[in-house]
Nucleic acid binder design. Structure first.
Lengths: 199, 199, 199, 199
DNA sequence: CATGAATGAGTTTTCATTCAT
DNA sequence: GATGAATGAAAACTCATTCAT
């Protein structure tokens, strides 16, 4: 997690340039899309020369893939983090849910970036592989739930998809300008999620 | 709906070219992305000259926006369609849900196209406006549900988002190569949806 | 031979652009070298847009290779041409020699181009293959000479190399500004060549 | 000659870096061409920093010109060297010829380098001037031959060109993979050379 | 002196769009 | 109307050279 913190806080001692480039690219790719963002623009935003980017990343595609993999890895780690196993599954689900929302709130741009680039044709094999691990934490959690017969008898991947789908859709709705979601609503939606899958 | 039928059956008598272009673009934009698809390729696939596209569409952006708007309009109409009002809300929900899945099944490419281009930076204001009407049918349905107090007390947009999110996520999971979803599972997921939102 | 004539006389009916590009490239690559010649310069000299070159040639390397192969093929054909077989070998040698010099005189730029690009690292396999056929006509002529025992007993390739080497070196010396070679001198050098190899 | 020995043996005490750079450049320019060789690559091969090259050479062009002039000077000196004047001209010619071949054999890379860069557009005036002195030794030898009327009455430059052309062509043929030249053949070719020019 | 990270001018190449036929 | 060859602006990327350390 320390690594990504640097992405945001840029405390790296020796050379902040790599991080500056990654941050500039994250923002611009999210705002304008991959193909809509020219490399000199990334360079300018990062405060480096155009050629400098190529000292750190082999190509534009390598840059977007690094970004995708770094953030997806971080997202997976962030979500998994800190969930005690000695509490009721219902409680654990709440913690999972809160972590999901915490990520979306703390790293809004990264959240949008990951969603926007899901299955993009310029993502390489490694990115594709990580993509599919997206809700692996949810899936293994639901395997446990299934064993203890607290959730409906459905493939754990499907249970994961249901919760993940609600998560993505609700966060998207919330970040669209139309209306703001309160904490109370988030808690209610968490309850909805559980109702959806519980036995 | 007649219009979209033409997109698929191409029975238009006078000039099939416009439809041919739209069909070619739909497929190519979905497979290769907007920026990854060169206009001459669209022309070739449509069996017309490169210049011909510009007799029907002002620009590449105009083409993708027309495509987006046509299909989003059609999707909205398709989903709304044929839902009787004189049956229990629970029954109506099931019909809504089935319509959603019918659309995704019948028009797989268009479904992917719409998902893929959600919030793309080259979509114009009109497309953005329609985007937000995405689950308007669901929203108004849930307004009725709320009045009759059969669903949880949440903003109808949020209820719509929850169901829509499950829908998108599950269809995506199903079209990914990893695993196939059976009709029985689809019915079970429909039940989950209802459990999520019912009072 | 008709094909190369067009390279020079540009009588091609439909599209002179391909020929214009080849002619411009021939001259510029010879004057400034391959890497020293920017594609827009070729385009300008050819009187076409920069993008047009890529309608006819896949890449800059494809252009230089086409040029090399076309001219080397033509050179080989030109030299072989019109040598009667019913005259003494000594006479035939004179005709060969004169053809060599005719080529160098008529197609000075192409002669320089071929010499300059011999074994260049951007030549592809096909060009390399043709390269080695360079003095194939001389080699087979010397095979005949060997059978009739009118030349020294040396590998025909070596006999070919000797004559070819004199040819290249003398033409180079003649085109260098320092001094001009007269027809009389050329005839004398032809005699030298024969003395070099005769028995 | 001592200078060039250093090029090869790198025994210079104080600063071997200049020699290391020259050696690296000689090899790389010959293998990959002038434009195909990036300066940092030269630096790496030489075991010095990229900036260090610019302490010894003003620019890439200055480097290649230094290389050209050093080696051409050395080649001229090497060829001239050690030819006694009190022996028959026919004998002296043999010695000259052997020196030529000795150079090509001992300094294969340098021989290729000189041939490859003949008349390159990035060579400066001084290099061009030396270029033309290439067979100056041969020329002055042939002036003597002409005075003693042992060779054909041709401009000494032309006589030089003939012998030089055979030399270059035969060495090239020998270093091409196609076939190897034996010492016996070399001696025979030397005889051919003399036959070519003798009265 | 030596370094090598950083640069930006310049390169090849692509592609949306036009317009003469 | 329809065409598709031609275009040139703009993109990704390279590399000789510099300069702070």
């Amino acid at each position: 997690m320390a690594k990504v913190t640097q992405l945001y806080e840029s405390i790296e001692p020796v050379s902040g340039k790599r991080e500056a480039i990654l941050n500039a690219a994250l923002q611009l790719f999210t705002e304008r899309g991959f193909h809509g963002t020219a490399m000199p623009l990334v360079a300018e935003q990062a405060g480096v020369g155009a050629g400098t980017i190529y000292r750190y990343f082999e190509s534009k595609e390598a840059l977007v893939n690094t970004l995708y993999q770094d953030w997806k890895d971080f997202q997976i780690a962030f979500i998994k983090d800190n969930v005690p196993t000695d509490i009721p599954l219902r409680e654990r689900f709440r913690i999972h849910w809160n972590r999901l929302l915490e990520f979306a709130t703390k790293y809004q741009v990264a959240f949008s970036f990951l969603e926007l680039h899901f299955h993009a044709p310029y993502l390489d094999e490694k990115s594709r592989a990580i993509e599919q691990q997206g809700h692996i934490a949810l899936v293994s959690f639901f395997q446990e739930c299934l064993q203890q017969q607290v959730v409906k008898k459905l493939a754990p991947e499907l249970l994961g998809s249901i919760v993940w789908g609600i998560y993505i859709s609700v966060v998207k709705a919330g970040s669209a300008e139309c209306f703001k979601i309160t904490q109370a609503e988030i808690d209610q939606i968490e309850a909805c999620c559980w109702e959806a899958i519980r036995l």
